[in-house]
């Protein structure tokens, strides 16, 4: 078993923990943080492949940089939306946001 598989397994574990957090946690901030965790698991994959992949190159690292940038943008917008919703509803519980039904 080479190192790559170990990294991928770790990434899978982190991804699934993040996913569980997204599905189960009620607090919107934790949901957002869980999403960040999932993104980070993906980053770990990218970086691992950049070292141990079929053709090691810097592209994987570059890609993870872009992912982080997008994650930052996403976090900023997410928190902004959260604050706006909180202002309207005085709650940060995801299960009380059922605007999608309408």
């Amino acid at each position: 078993m080479n190192m790559l598989a170990s990294y991928l397994t770790l990434a899978a574990v982190l991804f699934c923990i993040g996913l569980y957090g997204v599905i189960v946690k009620r607090n919107a901030i934790i949901v957002l943080l869980s999403i960040e965790l999932m993104l980070n698991a993906v980053n770990l994959n990218l970086v691992a492949f950049s070292k141990y992949g079929v053709q090691p190159s810097l592209t994987g690292q570059l890609f993870s940089l872009f992912t982080m940038t997008v994650a930052a943008a996403e976090a900023a917008v997410g928190v902004a939306i959260l604050v706006a919703i909180y202002r309207a509803r005085a709650s940060v519980n995801v299960d009380e946001f059922d605007e999608l039904r309408r």
Binding site: V22, I23, V31, V94, D95, R101
Partner: peptide
């Protein structure tokens, strides 16, 4: 199923 619950949707997708 169409409850408006975001997490329900995510679970269904999963």
């Amino acid at each position: 199923l169409q409850s408006g619950q975001l997490q329900g949707y995510a679970l269904t997708a999963l």
